[in-house]
Amino acid sequence: MRGLKKQRRIQVIIVATLALAVSASLIGYAMRDGINFFRAPIDVVESPPPPTEVFRIGGLVEDGSLIRGQGETIRFTVTDGGASVPVTYTGVLPDLFGEGQGMVGTGRLIDGVFEATEILARHDETYMPAEVIDALEEQGVYRHTEDGALPES
């Protein structure tokens, strides 16, 4: 009787371990496309990711770089002060998107051009994504003020 209980306990532990491993594998498989790493333009220029990697890029839209082409395709350059990366986007841009404004884009780097599938712009005059602020501060382009507001440009 005692051996049967011990054997049953071992079987339950093995089944629970297998169920945990299968669950972890399924979660990892489901999240494989949902995790996008942030890169600053200087990181993209210094070590370009492969064309298959989806990532986020952020910085300021370079002044004079915004070109609206035929149809819905828009071209512009995103910069962090240390490097600039050309961006193309097909779709409708956010209302607050413009030159000199902070932005974050999701997409792929193909032949040196970031092809965005999604563009986000800051939503009011005091907001900029934390990753963009950190990247711009590293380059010495941006200085965060004491009250949390953006410095006047």
Rank of each mutant, 00 (worst) to 15 (best):
L20F: 08
L20Y: 00
A21E: 06
V22C: 04
A24C: 08
A24M: 12
S25A: 13
S25R: 00
S25H: 06
S25Q: 03
G28N: 05
A30Q: 09
M31D: 05
R32V: 11
R32E: 10
R32L: 07
R32N: 09
R32D: 06
D33P: 09
D33T: 14
D33Y: 15
G34Q: 05
G34H: 09
G34N: 10
I35Y: 08
I35W: 08
N36I: 10
N36M: 06
F37I: 12
F38G: 11
F38K: 05
F38T: 07
R39A: 12
R39C: 12
R39F: 15
A40C: 13
A40K: 09
A40G: 11
A40S: 15
P41I: 09
P41E: 09
I42K: 15
I42T: 15
I42Y: 14
D43T: 13
D43Q: 15
V44Q: 09
V44R: 04
E46C: 04
E46R: 14
S47A: 12
P48A: 05
P48L: 07
P49G: 09
P49Y: 03
P50Q: 13
P50T: 14
P50I: 10
P51M: 02
P51K: 10
P51C: 12
T52E: 15
T52V: 14
T52R: 09
E53L: 13
E53N: 06
E53D: 02
V54K: 15
F55Q: 08
F55D: 03
F55Y: 05
F55N: 02
R56P: 01
R56Y: 10
I57W: 14
G58H: 04
G59E: 02
L60Q: 09
